[in-house]
């Protein structure tokens, strides 16, 4: 019989200060039961895949410069466009998430991750129509990236004025 057993005093605290302390203690406690990510393997995969994507981009850029006689800047722009389109196509085919599951930041941090972040919610909310579904959701994950990036560029421009 367990009639007089106490109940655990987790999560019943009302005082916000004590609550915060207890939450922290519980988080630490819960951590010991949670398996750790495979840091080394994940890091290696991210490094290699990320490096390979960049090398591929570099190879294409060189090819564009050598054979299509493009300037470096123009070739670089074309490479960006190609990478974006490729990542979006892979997202549409449903392959990008499998790649990201393997490579993690290796394909999220290159511009491919940005392209995937645009298309994935747009496909997802397609049922809500071409305007508020696809049109609006295209920016639900990537919007913040554009907003923060462009704001940063505006600030950079302002700083440049005073230089």
């Amino acid at each position: 019989m367990s009639n007089d057993k106490k109940l655990p005093d987790i999560g019943t605290e009302q005082d916000p200060k004590v609550k915060k302390q207890k939450a922290k203690a519980y988080e630490e406690y819960a951590k010991q039961f949670t398996p750790k990510p495979k840091y080394a393997a994940n890091g290696l995969k991210a490094f290699v895949v990320g490096g390979l994507i960049c090398c591929g981009a570099f190879a294409v850029q060189n090819w564009l410069m050598d054979f299509m006689k493009l300037e470096e800047k123009e070739a670089g722009t074309w490479v960006t466009v190609l990478l974006v389109c490729l990542a979006q196509l892979l997202t549409g085919l449903g392959w990008f998430d499998s790649l990201a599951k393997f490579a993690g930041a290796g394909c999220i941090v290159p511009i491919t991750g940005f392209a995937n972040a645009m298309v994935s919610p747009a496909i997802e909310y397609k049922a809500e129509g071409p305007v508020l579904g696809v049109g609006a959701k295209l920016f639900s994950v990537a919007g913040p990236v554009l907003v923060c990036g462009i704001t940063a560029s505006v600030i950079a421009g302002i700083i440049q004025v005073f230089r």
Binding site: G92, G94, F96, A100, K101, G113, S120, V141
Partner: peptide
């Protein structure tokens, strides 16, 4: 959480 096709890694928990 995130859209299905969104590339991400799920933590062990």
């Amino acid at each position: 959480r995130m859209p299905l096709e969104h590339g991400n890694q799920r933590p062990p928990s």
